[in-house]
Design a protein around this nucleic acid. Structure first.
Length: 128
RNA sequence: CGAGCCGACCGGACGGCCGCGUCGCGGGCCUGCUGCACGCAGCGGGCCGGUGCCGAGGAAAGUCCGGGCUCCACAGGGCAGGGUGGUUGUUAACGGCAACCCGGGGCGACCCGCGGGACAGUGCCACAGAAAAUAAACCGCCUUGCGGGCGGCCGGUUCGCCGGUCUAUCGCAAGGUAAGGGUGAAACGGCGGUGUAAGAGACCACCAGCGUCCCGGGCGACCGGGGCGGCUAGGCAAACCCCACCCGGAGCAAGGUCAAGAGGGCCGGCUUGCCGGCCUGCGCAGGCGAUCGAGGGCGGCCCGCCCGAGCCUGCGGGUAGACCGCUCGAGCCUGGCGGCAACGUCAGGCGUAGAUGGAUGGCCGUCGCCUCGGGCUUGCCCGAGGCACAGAACCCGGCUUACAGGUUGACUCGUCCG
RNA sequence: GCCCCCGUAGCUCAGGGGAUAGAGCACUGCCCUCCGGAGGCAGGGGCGCAGGUUCGAAUCCUGCCGGGGGCA
């Protein structure tokens, strides 16, 4: 587990982050992040991080393996992630059996995409 | 040595850096209550560092059985419903396990079997076949009678035939018979003989099989032997059913303890829609109460003044959340004894995960094993890839299913040698 | 964690011991038409898997596999 302060522990928080957060994808994962704007967070408050690994990824052993890999990768990137109010990492079926180095690359790409200021992208909006 | 059969066990090893969880020890910060000598002590709570021990499986899985535990229900018995099904044991219990019996398979070690009852009753047995279950009808076979009739013989004859008789054979009727009917998964004992008009357990020998009685062995399922009787009985109960035995229901999200808040009302503040403070929960029962004032406020108390429609007591229930249940248990290991064994018993030793968005790990290195490619000194070197099935959630006993590779024991068959 | 139900053709469903396993839609080919549709004719394709009971199993029994739903 992550240090207690960083754990996301309620399903309300998961639903909030997934429906309101900025979404950014990579081949094996999707992340959802909510910023601190409009919240009562202090700038030093810790970020709540949650993980979603569905049954489509694999059996219990595979899912736990993916979860632990992602947890270690996020723990190493806490200084980067700390700017957000909350973060949810969802593992896609492609994450099963993927080495941690590749998962880390995917995570970095998604974080960079999420950090970019939102641009007007009508085509992307329509596709959604 | 080869082939086989039945078990038992293991299921990567070591190291470096960084992390997570329970528990213990110790520290810092914040905070609640109590005490006073007024900034300290005691008892708690929360957060953050440090440190020490420990931290997934043989199936943790499927949830197919059985139990412990908890709550509800319950006098006893019966019905309904469900389950089990050779015998004897074993056990907390079981649909598990052990030994044995019976049937089947294998040269054998050994394996497989939902393995009670089809004379309690009901039902089903397609197609084919004469017939599919009291058995009877049909074909066929045989005898007799009547009728026809190839042919033979005898007699008569007008030489055209006529009559009689025997008879291959055909038809009809009556009677006898169940041997035969080749279809089927299955056909009312089998083979041989006697017998007969033809036949038949009608009779005989042998065999299979049923019922019953006796003797012997075994706790028993059952086994061995003998006598007598009818001559003979189909299958399906994983069809209904009958018999014997067993089963109350739900499940740790069981259940228990402590219990906010939201909502409502009042007051205050101001940045007039927010913030802060105080009071108040629900149900039932009883009691008191608005002319006679319940209760509250001011006050040390009485008097007095003010507010006033609810208030008091008892019992019961309880959401979020927290805590308990929560890991020492039919425990594990070693040895002795009893038992063929499953198992039981005695002695000694061991201390063994308890998470809750859910810990038990992430990255890297060395070694080991396997596969492929290359080099070749033919068993080594180099390179690449891989290392099974699978993750505790109240706990046990089993079953079933998945599983790379490996260790080990007993036994059987074959070949060779002694 | 516990409980219940269902797997039959590409899809939706019948069939509950003896069938060549059916129906509708869909698919393929041909006819019709200038072309397409509609219509007509013909055709292909299936009992989740493995054992067992039975003479015989989609059907009955057992074990797996997959899917769906419910409880709090």
């Amino acid at each position: 587990m992550l240090p207690r302060a960083h754990r996301m522990t309620s399903s309300d928080q998961f639903a909030e982050t997934i429906s309101r957060g900025r979404r950014a994808g990579a081949p094996s994962i999707v992340i959802y992040a909510t910023s601190r704007e409009g919240t009562t967070d202090e700038p030093t408050a810790t970020t709540a991080v949650g993980f979603v690994v569905s049954k489509a990824v694999g059996n219990s052993v595979v899912r736990h393996r993916v979860l632990r890999q992602l947890r270690a990768l996020v723990a190493a990137r806490l200084p980067v992630v700390d700017g957000y109010h909350a973060l949810v990492v969802r593992a896609l079926p492609a994450a099963a059996g993927r080495p941690s180095a590749m998962l880390g690359a995917d995570l970095d790409r998604a974080l960079i995409k999420a950090a970019r200021p939102p641009r007007a992208m009508p085509s992307a909006e329509r596709a959604r």
